[in-house]
Amino acid sequence: MLKEIIQPENLAYKKTELMTDTVLSYCPGCGHGTIHRLMMDVIEELDAWEDTIGVAPVGCSVLAYEFMNVDMQQAAHGRAPAVATGIKRCWPDKLVFTYQGDGDLAAIGTAETIHAINRGENIVIVFVNNGIYGMTGGQMAPTTLPNMKSSTSPYGRDVDMMGAPLKITELISQLPGAYYVTRQAVHTPAHVRKTKKAIKKAFQNQIDKKGGVSFVEVVSNCNSGWKMTPVQSNEWMVDNMFPFYPLGDIKVDGELVTK
């Protein structure tokens, strides 16, 4: 019976070949792998893989170029939007994206993020927000929630000392150069499908030269940094991250979404 079903003509889903066969360096259950695959799915569906150049950040996804089977550059910490600017200005007809975490994009790279968006660079920025520095061992990020514990806020983030978590996505949505700004997640099949649509819209905007950055935030888990099982971390994310970082479109076609 199973043999009858498992036949090439019955194939319903298989990982895209734009993901390499290299084993992902991410922890079990980490959303990075899902987001990588969605991006490569989209590039494949848009038949754009010969014209795509990606920029990997510093952080857990520093090795994104090992997994995404397109031309890739690895940028210095926080500088991916500047690197992408350099590529896109010289190759305006190519598809250029950055893939960045919250430490990279919202702390050390805040200036590059804001100015690339303010210039309206016609690029896609995928921003993975898990509220922590994963790669370096779970330190506090600009997006770490109030009272949330990390290795550099072992008693919880004290907002009197460290300030409130930075809602960089809402912040950049105010800039005229931001054309499409959305916040998504990938912890359930329904959310995965919505995120894929968002990523596809972002790349389609770039192809159509809509004039501005398409910015997709994905709120994700960090079970190692949060010290939970993968499934627990997804539940914790729903209960704690989503109230502070609500999902949904923030700006569509250059217009802020009013709720």
Binding site: I53, V55, Q73, A75, A76, R79, A82, V83, A84, T85, G86, I87, R89, C90, W91, A111, E112, H115
Partner: peptide, 18 residues
């Protein structure tokens, strides 16, 4: 004109890498 010298050299990195 970049927003900083840091951004400028990283734009150079991107373009040179391309």
């Amino acid at each position: 004109q970049a927003e900083s010298e840091v951004a400028a050299i990283n734009m150079v990195y991107g373009a040179a890498g391309a």
